[in-house]
C-alpha cells in the first residue's frame, strides 16, 4: 500500500529580483510502514517538501497525496492523521515536559494513556524529568520529547524534519534506534537529515541536492551503484597527500574520509597494480579496496 505519493511537484519562491526554485520535478512513492530518508544538505529543498506534504504549503505544479488523501483538496483529513516535527521545532520552553505532552495530546483530541504503548519506549526515557521545563532539557532529551509529542495521536505517517541536526553522535544513535522501533507499529516515517551516515539506517533514501532528487534507492542499492573501484589511502602527511593526489591526472577523485582518503582512478587499473600506481604519485603508507559509502555516492552524484 502506498502511504505517500509525490507526482511532478514543483515549487518556486520569489526572492528579490529573482525566482528561486526550491523543488523541481519531485517524484517518489513511500509504502506503508517504510522508513524513508530524505538525505541532503541545507537548502536542498527538504523542508519545502515536508511543508507541501503536511499541507502547510501549496505546490506550484504537480500533485501529492498522503494516505490516499490529496494534499490540497483533503488537507483537513491529512491534518488528522499525520505527525509532524518541524526542523526548528523547539516546543514550549516555559512548559514542563508533562504539560507539553498533554497539550499536544489534547490538540489532537487524545491523551497520553490512550496511545501509551506507542510512546512508551520514548516516554520512559524522559519520564524522570516530567516536571522539568522543556527549556532546561538537553538537546537529545528535547528531541525525544518532540518525537513523543509528534507521535502522541498515533499518526499513520510521521514527518520528521532534521530531527538530529546539532545533536551529538550518541543521542543521534539512540534516536535512530527509537525510529526503527516505531516501525513495529506500522507507522510510515519520512525523515530528513544532512548526515549522510544516517542514510544506511533507512529502508530507502532519496538523495537531494538543489531541489532535485538525484537518486532514490535502498542504501544498499545506492552504494552498489557506485561504478568505479574505490580505494582508501593513508599517508604520513594526509593534507599533502590529498593535494598531490588531487593534482594528479591519473586520479579522478580524492576526498578525505576520516583517517583515509577515498580515491578513484581516471582509468581502470587492475587491483594488483593500484599500490604501485599510487607509489608513483605520492608516498603512501596503506592502500585498500573498500565498498563505497552513501557519502561517496552523494559526492559522485554531485559531480555529475
Amino acid at each position: 500500500m502506498i502511504a505517500v505519493k509525490v507526482n511532478s511537484v514543483k515549487k518556486t519562491f520569489k526572492a528579490e529580483k529573482s525566482v528561486v526554485t526550491a523543488l523541481q520535478q519531485i517524484n517518489f512513492e513511500v509504502s506503508k510502514g517504510e522508513l524513508f530518508g530524505l538525505i541532503g544538505p541545507d537548502g536542498a529543498g527538504k523542508t519545502t517538501l515536508f511543508r507541501i506534504l503536511t499541507t502547510l504549503m501549496l505546490a506550484d505544479e504537480g500533485a501529492a497525496s498522503v494516505d490516499g488523501f490529496d494534499v490540497v483538496r483533503d488537507y483537513k483529513e491529512i491534518r488528522k492523521r499525520v505527525g509532524y516535527m518541524p526542523g526548528r521545532f523547539s516546543l514550549y520552553q516555559d512548559l514542563t515536559v508533562e504539560e507539553n505532552l498533554s497539550f499536544f495530546a489534547t490538540l489532537f483530541n487524545t491523551s497520553l494513556e490512550e496511545n501509551y504503548d506507542l510512546v512508551k519506549a520514548i516516554y520512559q526515557q524522559i519520564e524522570p524529568f516530567k516536571k522539568r521545563r522543556a527549556g532546561a532539557l538537553s538537546g537529545g532529551m528535547k528531541q525525544k520529547l518532540a518525537l513523543s509529542c509528534a507521535l502522541i495521536h498515533r499518526p499513520s505517517v510521521l514527518f520528521l524534519d532534521e530531527p538530529t541536526t546539532g545533536v551529538d553522535a550518541v543521542s543521534r544513535k539512540e534516536f535512530w534506534e527509537l525510529l526503527r522501533d516505531l516501525q513495529k507499529h506500522q507507522i510510515t516515517i519520512i525523515v530528513s537529515t544532512p548526515y549522510m551516515d544516517e542514510a544506511s539506517l533507512c529502508d530507502r533514501v532519496a538523495l537531494m541536492q538543489n531541489g532535485k532528487i538525484m537518486e532514490i534507492n535502498s542504501p544498499k542499492g545506492i552504494t552498489e551503484n557506485f561504478k568505479k573501484p574505490l580505494w582508501a589511502v593513508r599517508g604520513e602527511n594526509m593534507y599533502q597527500l590529498m593535494q598531490t593526489l588531487q593534482a594528479s591526472e591519473a586520479i579522478d577523485s580524492c576526498y578525505p574520509f576520516g583517517q583515509y582518503h577515498h580515491v578513484t582512478f581516471t582509468h581502470a587499473i587492475p587491483d594488483s597494480q593500484v599500490a604501485s600506481e599510487l607509489a608513483k604519485i605520492a608516498s603512501v603508507v596503506e592502500v585498500k579496496r573498500i565498498p563505497a559509502t552513501i557519502e561517496d555516492c552523494f559526492m559522485e552524484l554531485m559531480r555529475q
Binding site: 541532503g40 544538505p41 593534507y239
Partner: peptide, 24 residues
C-alpha cells in the same frame, strides 16, 4: 563552533581544506 553543520559533503571537505591551509 560546529562550522560544518548542515553543509553538503563536498563543501564540507572544501571547508576542511581551508582549515588545513590556515594551520599550515
Amino acid at each position: 563552533d560546529e562550522p560544518t553543520g548542515g553543509v553538503d559533503p563536498v563543501t564540507r571537505r572544501e571547508f576542511w581544506t581551508l582549515i588545513y591551509e590556515a594551520a599550515s
